[in-house]
Nucleic acid binder design. Structure first.
Lengths: 257, 257
DNA sequence: ATGTCTTTGTGAACGCGTGCACAAAGATGG
DNA sequence: CCATCTTTGTGCACGCGTTCACAAAGACAT
């Protein structure tokens, strides 16, 4: 999955495996679609197909939540939607701040899926004084200086970092110090956080590189042998030379400036 | 991690475990940074710390690539950068098309990290005729009608989908039919593809929901018991009722229109 | 009320990934 | 040339996650 978790081995919340938690949103989405079509019940087989997973896996996942199915019939769609929503904590409101209002930050601010699932953009924060006051997606951008106050005034516990890589760790530290305990990081950096803080990472560059690996493999298999001969000395090319501008690991998923 | 793989159990490429492949870009980034600072060699311990992983894991990962280290010294930075780049297929040029030039698509087009790692935006494609010809990030947007021709003329094998959920599967089918074998999907949908096609998913909504789950758990532990009593009948609230507007699973990571 | 048929829930086996701990390898100094 | 010291490469054990396969449970018809 493009989603790379960082740190935090697997807290094993309350018996619910991490892998299961990661799939619950998938089930929820499929169930919501069924709910809109007024489908009353669904079998594990059907729902699994809609979510793109194995039906046995789905049943085991649900078994961690309790026994919400009826044998011979399937699962009650509405009830399951509620149960999963509750388990994921989606029945309450989660104020979120986005730090770094560049290309990506602005795009995230415009994200429609936020509000529809209990997430509310409480504030947009950027280090550029010129941005201050300028509305993005109907919300005025505030300056980084007020970060701590914003977090505390709004009771924010989830922060989204969309800054350049260089600014990510300092911003992260400030967020955590102000009380944020969950961070979604779009900057291409490894964030270090104290215990008790969850970090999830979204990294476009890494995703593409993984795809390139598989793509190369496919191409290599077709054209017979191919490589094989590993050059004794690095033939020059990569490394320091090709860093034509940003060191790549220097810009966030989408550069702001 | 925002990266959610879809389908494709674990092709186990050529002995290199999928988990290792997913970490190689991480190592590469850390190594590139060292290379820029002209650090000649690095120990597994240091590099592991920079990449945020266990040093034993890192050594085992590298062992799959071959023995590129020197005992008592460490790894040659430049050489390792080259080897990993080669293994990931980053020594060649990968033309990429982005389909769906909305908020997110435009942000992705502006992404600086593309070019610096062998990825080149070959074309931007959108279904809106009004977008056609309009330059985004210096590249003129082309209409969906020409999708097949664009793919073939540029020899594109990697496609990025940033369309609304409803358009994702049709677009995906057309991309695959035209020859694309790797897809990075930002639309909140499960894509079904034939064997041999890799799909990786980036889903903001899912990431936030996972964070919310852990956040709720943390909050619940503090306030003692808390829930526990599961309502016999769904207390109403979620489900069909709260779909105030978009069904959530209807807009891509960032809505275009 | 009983039998049949569908679908859940789960026991058990298997495979992958992780991390420990250590032996082998080689650099470095005397 | 030998001893010492650092760091790699890996054998091994453990735990999580996945999948199969099946018994139990309940709906539904007769």
């Amino acid at each position: 999955m493009a989603t790379g978790r960082t740190h935090r081995p697997a807290t094993r919340s309350r018996g619910i495996p991490e892998a299961t938690v990661a799939r619950l949103p998938l089930y929820l989405r499929a169930l919501t679609a069924l709910s809109e079509r007024s489908v009353p019940t669904v079998s594990s087989e059907e729902l699994a197909a809609a979510a793109g997973v194995n039906s046995a896996k789905l049943r085991k996942d649900f078994s961690y939540l309790g026994s919400y199915g009826t044998r011979g019939v399937g699962y009650d769609v509405e009830y399951l939607v509620y149960q999963i929503s509750r388990e994921l904590g989606l029945t309450q409101d989660w104020p979120v701040v986005i730090v770094g209002i560049g290309n990506l930050g602005a795009a995230l601010a415009n994200y429609g899926g936020f509000a529809s699932r209990g997430f509310r953009v409480a504030a947009l924060i950027d280090a550029d004084p010129a941005m201050a006051g300028k509305p993005v997606a109907g919300i005025p951008v505030q300056h980084t200086d007020d970060l701590e106050k914003i977090i505390k005034d709004n009771g924010v516990s989830i922060g989204v970092i969309a800054t350049p890589a260089g600014a990510a760790q300092p911003v992260c530290d400030r967020l955590v110090a102000a009380g944020v305990t969950s961070i979604l990081n779009f900057a291409p950096t490894v964030l270090s956080v104290p215990d008790g803080v969850d970090v999830r990472k979204v990294d476009l560059s890494i995703e593409l590189q993984i795809l390139a690996f598989h793509e190369q493999r496919k191409a290599g298999e077709e054209t017979a042998a191919g490589d094989g001969a590993l050059p004794a000395a690095a033939p020059r090319g990569a490394a320091a030379g090709d860093a034509d501008q940003g060191p790549d690991g220097d810009v966030p998923a989408v550069m702001p400036a």
